[in-house]
Design a protein around this nucleic acid. Structure first.
Lengths: 214, 214, 214, 214
DNA sequence: AATGAATGAGTCTTCATTCAT
DNA sequence: CATGAATGAAGACTCATTCAT
């Protein structure tokens, strides 16, 4: 109540951009939590507001609509993934290390805590064009692109000229995606051997199915 | 109608199970069509009824609820898949043929006309436990089981004793699933080379990434 | 259709009126059973048909609509009540016997097995004018009328000229009705002393609240 | 709004409970009106909303579901009844006054304006366990309890030791309930003599049927 | 008369979104 | 910017009733 024209200040405090960002994050994290546990369509704005500790209407100050929350979550996840994923020095890596690393990262990332959320996102990605685009461009394409780059280099350096790098790399990403999906669907074998997968898959891929097993 | 034929005296023919079945199919096909074009949640019962040419209520004479329609579609697809999939004599196949066949079937099946529907099913499978179970048990598990059987035999006969058949086969199914998903998500490369995939993937898997390319 | 050919006879057997009646009864009893256990509005025609062992549509050959079933049940109950209620020779009865008898009959009748059904009927009687009329005219009025007759006679013979027989008798019927209702609502005391009620109430009514208790 | 008064600085006044209460009341009164005229099952939420002057959805901000409206009405009636019923000093009353009062109150209360509504409530009470409980506990039990207390005292003070107060009081409440029901069912006699009933019934109860009539 | 599949009007209820305060 | 009560469109589902067989 300390005023020289205090009301104005009190009533319209200069909006700190940090606050805006953190509010967004706060809401997104609440959304992630609830989406993960109830799915997208079963989650109501009220649910999210309650968990976020804000009013229903407040959410609409930060997000266009309910779907925008999903897009926002994608951004958030991408952002974090990027921070964690130090632009690892792929350049000098040998193939085995590369493959193991490349397979391991997504598998352990999802292992951590994102299975439920992943379900929800995939679910909507399947059905929502905008989200599908976002997912493809922000998540899948960059990952694939990076690997393709590496594979080309490696093929060139090792005299494997005929390698269809563009398809080979899709083999890798499809494999990862498929593994996660099957795990999510309740496959027991995958759950039991989840940690060994990067290693085993790498050997299978390098030596070929008929190759020598370590 | 007034004829001497004996049929005329049959007054209450035991309700033709055929009719029931065909009505179910009629409704399911309508559902598939609408689901594919609008997604599950955006489709109303009225939409389906209209396309099927029946009243809203009639649908509930054949299906418990909206979700049951999806389960029914799963059955229908499984049924058809089973009919198409002659219990091919895997026993005598060489590895290359086996892999190509095994990869090819799902890819071409979905190529045909089911992409949109596949999206919807995967979408709900991710989020609906009952459906997930159905999908896993009816679609994924049988496929995987068959292949595992083959791989074990093959490994034994070809002296590759250490092969982790249980994981190797999951490599295959994950690969398939992942390829379809990436394609569904709009990957251009995959779309362009869809028909070559079984062949290319087979070579990559047999020879290993480092293997000799044909 | 009117020909001598045997088929005609076989196909349209002369309908035995007994059969009609028994079919009606069969359906009504099924209705009573289901109504009693689920209430009127929660009971579907299909429920009744199943219990009666007939098809849905058959019910509509015997009853105009769902409400008519209630009216029919009323008739059925009235009919039975009338048969049981031998036009007891009230004429010579002393007051105490009369009262005890008069109170006892409805209480034990409902005790038997009709509580649940009574609930349903009262429920609809409250809300459905036609049914209310039926109940009033077929059940309440006759009972009250009979008693009024007796009371007048008795008052005359015993020199109690001022007795407002018309109201006194309503005291009796209201009492009965009210007791049943309170019992139905779960009053424990009434349930425990149900059998003693006719006696106790009779004494209270004869002696007055301040009267000597036996 | 822009004045110097301190109130102006109160920005988010804790939502006035008064407003909530009044909105509830507004809706309940609308519900009572419509229920009374059309019955419970024939009344739609839309009907109530229209009469209350709110949107359909608004009703669900104040009541769980349609049935909760009935429960709410019970509360409202109980509340009002309690306010009217000053905890009258029964202690010092003589029996005649007590009885007259005790009988009179419910009869005149319902006379006023509640007959139609009473019908609806009784109707549902018969069939809905939750409502039945509410009615029993909030309406019937308290009334009965109060009277029982009085009767015990009175019996003790007047040397009527054998009085079955627990049953005697149920005679009273049953009588009341039954009278209202018969009146509701269209009994002309009761309607005509409604106002005299408390008096007449009191005399009948005190003197006994055989007693001297005033 | 019996059947029971088909009908489709009718309703409760949900919930994303708005907007006055 | 925050709030949260109000909104009302939308949809799944029920079920009494009909009628062709």
């Amino acid at each position: 109540m300390n005023d020289d024209s205090p009301e104005a200040t009190i009533m319209h405090p200069p909006v700190q951009p940090d606050l805006i960002a953190s509010r967004r994050t706060q809401i997104l994290e609440a959304a992630a939590e609830v989406f993960a546990s109830k799915g997208f369509h079963s989650t109501t704005i009220k649910d999210i507001a309650r968990v976020a500790g804000v009013a229903d209407g407040t959410i609409y100050n930060y997000f266009e609509n309910k779907t925008a929350l999903l897009l926002g979550m994608l951004d958030l996840m991408t952002e974090r993934a990027r921070q964690e994923a130090q632009p690892a020095n792929l350049a000098g890596m040998d193939l085995r290390t590369f493959l193991t690393t490349y397979l391991q990262r997504p598998l352990t990332t999802f292992e951590a805590n994102n299975f439920e959320l992943f379900r929800v996102i995939v679910s909507e990605v399947m059905v929502n064009a905008a989200l599908r685009d976002g997912f493809y461009k922000q998540v899948l394409k960059p990952t694939v692109g990076l690997a393709e780059q590496y594979l080309r280099q490696w093929a060139e350096q090792n005299g494997v000229p005929a390698l269809r790098a563009d398809l080979a790399v899709r083999l890798l990403s499809s494999l990862t995606l498929g593994l996660i999906l099957q795990r999510v669907m309740g496959d027991q074998i995958l759950e039991r051997h989840w940690d060994e997968l990067p290693g085993v898959m790498t050997e299978l891929l390098i030596g070929g199915l008929a190759g020598e097993q370590p």
